[in-house]
Simulated assay, not measured.
Amino acid sequence: MFVKRIATALALVLGFTGVAMAQAPSPTRIEQFKAWGAYSYKSGKNTVCYVLSVPTTKEPASVNHGDIFFIVSQRPGQNISYEPQAMMGYTLKAGSKVTVKIDNKSFTMFTKDSAAWVENAAEEPALAAAMKSGKTMSVSAFSARGTPTSYTYSLQGISDAFKRIEKCK
Rank of each mutant, 00 (worst) to 15 (best):
K93N: 07
L92W: 09
I165R: 00
F16L: 13
N120K: 14
M87L: 13
F162H: 09
G89M: 03
T57C: 12
I165W: 01
A11W: 00
L52I: 11
S43K: 15
L127W: 00
T28M: 11
I30L: 11
V48K: 04
R164W: 00
G37T: 06
T47S: 09
A130T: 04
T152L: 12
S96Y: 14
Q85D: 00
S26E: 05
K163Q: 11
A22L: 10
S140I: 13
M109Q: 03
E123D: 03
V54T: 11
S81F: 00
R5A: 05
K4W: 04
L52V: 11
V3K: 05
G89C: 06
A141G: 13
K45W: 01
A130N: 05
P148H: 03
S140C: 13
A126W: 00
K132R: 13
K167Y: 06
K112C: 15
K132P: 10
Q156G: 12
G157F: 06
E83P: 07
Q32F: 08
S81V: 00
Y151M: 09
F69Q: 15
A130Q: 07
A24F: 05
Y151V: 09
G66L: 05
T149R: 09
E119R: 09
M88S: 07
A22F: 02
A94D: 13
T17G: 13
G37W: 01
K132A: 12
S81R: 00
K42F: 10
W36P: 11
A24I: 12
F107A: 06
A116C: 14
V54A: 08
P84W: 00
A116W: 12
I165H: 01
M137Y: 03
G15V: 15
K45M: 05
N104G: 03
L155Q: 06
V63Q: 12
S154C: 11
W36R: 12
A144T: 12
P148M: 05
Y50E: 11
A11F: 02
F33N: 08
S106A: 15
V100G: 01
S62K: 10
T136K: 08
L10C: 13
M1E: 04
T28A: 03
T8A: 02
P76F: 04
T99D: 12
S53L: 02
S73P: 01
K58W: 10
I6L: 03
E59I: 15
A7D: 01
L10S: 09
A144I: 14
R145E: 07
K93E: 07
G134T: 08
A144S: 09
L127F: 01
S114M: 13
L10M: 14
S140L: 10
I6D: 05
D67G: 00
A129W: 00
E166G: 00
K167T: 15
P27T: 07
V3I: 05
P60D: 14
E59V: 15
